[in-house]
Design a protein around this nucleic acid. Structure first.
Length: 275
DNA sequence: GCCCAGGGAATCG
DNA sequence: CGATTCCATGGG
């Protein structure tokens, strides 16, 4: 996408391939809120304020150097979603829902935050996932002017599973600690995971207690940029049996299956008023 | 009270 | 193996 800078802000020229509303609301991140015409949140230890205007999306208070170094990748701005949409539209059902789902981009989020967030997501609903993560950050993150960073593995190890009781995450607390331990010990090494193929990476992440096939798939898609990762949650399973039956062929989404997954997930929740 | 929520571990047959 | 059951918690 094209962008320029003015008065300390970045202006992204809208072309229909980025909707803040959909991208923040499709269940891949839990830390952005709509505030009037603004979207506010914390990502990569920094506070972000964005505005969706007629011609531009404004990312406030960022210098060109920082924008290019962090936010172009975070918002996946260099990927050509128009051609992805063209490819996905060859699927009859996706071509029908494209108008509703297009504008979602796969965010490239912090790996640890995504691991932790999707451990919390298991057998849970999105409003409560958000609440737990907010409490986690307020309780153990570093204070920013208007928010909190996501707490590090070391910080959570120092409070332990008992200390996590304030976030009311139930049985998931011990899973969070296990993840933190395996990351600190080096058993789970992010650089190694980037070098693996999708299956090997998934199996590696599943060494963490509380991380199964679905959570690992979300982590690889939203945290590591594995664009062919295709998390199968209850909504996607519903989509498959409702619209595809036995005709679902993931092979035709090669290279962007994760985008297809988000489109389907967002659509089914959208028509069921889950937003 | 019952059911479910972006599942996964433990247990059982 | 596949199929059940249990796991904490809160909202509808």
């Amino acid at each position: 996408m094209n962008y320029f800078f003015k008065d300390g802000n970045a202006y992204i020229e809208k072309d229909g391939s980025l909707s803040l509303e959909k991208t923040f609301d499709c269940g891949q991140t839990f830390r952005f809120e709509k505030d009037g015409s603004l979207f506010k949140g914390v990502a990569l230890n920094r506070e972000l304020t964005l505005k969706d205007e007629e011609e531009h999306i404004i990312l406030y208070n960022t210098e060109p150097e920082e924008f290019k170094r962090l936010w172009v990748r975070y918002f996946d701005l260099e990927r050509d979603y128009a051609s992805i949409n063209k490819k996905l539209a060859k699927d009859e059902f996706i071509s029908k829902i494209l108008d509703i789902s297009k504008g979602i981009r796969i965010l490239k989020q912090d790996e640890w935050e995504v691991i932790c967030s999707f451990i919390i997501s298991q057998n849970n609903n999105i409003p409560r996932i958000k609440k737990i993560i907010n409490t986690l950050c307020e309780s153990f993150g570093d204070k920013l002017p208007n928010g909190y960073t996501f707490p590090s593995p070391e910080k959570l190890l120092s409070v332990g599973a008992e200390g996590l009781s304030v976030i009311r995450s139930g049985f998931r607390a011990k899973y969070i600690i296990d993840a933190a331990e395996k990351i600190k010990s080096g058993q789970i090494n992010f650089e190694d995971i980037y070098k693996m193929d999708l299956e090997a990476a998934k199996i590696k992440l599943m060494e963490i207690k509380g991380v199964g096939d679905k959570v690992a798939s979300c982590v690889l898609l939203f945290g590591f940029g594995f664009m062919d990762s295709f998390p199968k949650d209850v909504w996607i399973k519903k989509v498959m049996e409702k619209y595809y039956k036995e005709n679902f062929d993931i092979a035709k989404f090669q290279g962007c299956a994760g985008v297809a997954q988000q489109y389907l997930f967002y659509y089914e929740r959208y028509i069921n008023n889950k937003r």
